[in-house]
Amino acid sequence: MASVPSYAASVGPPIISVGGACKLPGASCSDVFTNGYVFEVSVTNTTNETIWLYNQPGYMIVVTDDSPDIDLFFQAAVNGVTGLVVTFPAELTPGASVTVILNAGSNGDAGNIADIQGTISVPWGNTPGPTDPVPPPAVAGFTAPGTPPIQSPDCSITLPPNCGTQPG
């Protein structure tokens, strides 16, 4: 009988949904976020098993974009309610959901981009540390029709109180 990879018997991936996106000028969230863009991202574990979200070498959160003016990359995440910095691996119990404000820095002009399309890819697994083989990352596409500054009334994201507070 052939061996089946451990992830084949594991639970399904978390569900990722991407909300608004706004330009983040300056250090608008303590010393955690720098210039770039913020996205409101909800990650939900719809299974009956605990899962972990990873962000470490070999298993990095990846943000892609289609803009010729910028090149987005993942910088940090804070809990959208508490403002605490999300540390990885991040545990997500059965049925739990976490909304994070994900910061994607950019190479290039961080001006107001008319429209950004791309993906957010989050590595995950059934153990606190990645063990080979790991399941494919959870991926969500997004379209951000304009990126108003976070301080603008046109921005749908509200940074949480004490944004960027270290857990502990």
Results as ranks from 00 to 15, higher is better:
M1C: 04
A2K: 11
V4S: 10
S6V: 09
A9T: 10
S10G: 14
S10R: 09
S10F: 05
V11Y: 02
G12C: 00
P14V: 03
P14E: 04
S17Y: 04
S17H: 07
S17D: 14
G19T: 15
G19N: 14
A21S: 11
K23W: 06
K23Q: 13
L24P: 04
P25W: 10
A27P: 09
C29P: 12
S30T: 04
D31R: 15
D31L: 15
F33L: 02
F33Q: 07
F33T: 03
N35D: 11
Y37H: 09
V38G: 06
F39L: 15
V41A: 04
S42F: 02
T44F: 06
N45H: 05
N45Q: 07
N48F: 04
N48T: 12
E49M: 07
E49H: 11
E49P: 04
T50Q: 05
T50N: 05
I51M: 07
I51H: 04
L53E: 05
Y54E: 06
Y54W: 13
N55A: 00
Q56E: 08
Q56T: 08
P57M: 10
G58H: 14
G58D: 14
V63T: 08
D66A: 00
D66W: 01
D66R: 02
S67C: 07
S67I: 03
P68S: 10
P68K: 10
L72P: 06
L72H: 06
F73G: 03
F73Y: 08
F74P: 01
Q75W: 01
Q75C: 07
A76Y: 11
A76K: 15
N79K: 09
T82A: 12
L84C: 04
T87Q: 11
F88L: 13
F88D: 12
F88W: 15
P89V: 00
A90V: 07
E91C: 09
E91K: 15
E91F: 09
L92A: 12
A96W: 09
A96P: 08
A96D: 15
A96K: 14
A96I: 08
T99S: 13
I101N: 07
N103C: 13
N107A: 09
N107W: 08
G108F: 13
D109Q: 10
N112M: 13
N112F: 11
I113P: 14
A114Q: 14
D115P: 01
I116H: 04
Q117S: 12
T119I: 10
T119S: 14
S121H: 01
S121Y: 02
V122A: 03
T131V: 15
P133I: 08
V134Q: 13
V134G: 05
P135R: 13
P135W: 09
V139P: 00
A140V: 13
F142Y: 15
T143N: 05
P145L: 12
T147R: 01
P149V: 06
I150Y: 02
Q151S: 10
S152F: 00
D154R: 13
C155I: 00
I157G: 06
T158R: 10
T158Q: 07
L159V: 02
L159D: 01
G164C: 04
G164F: 03
T165G: 04
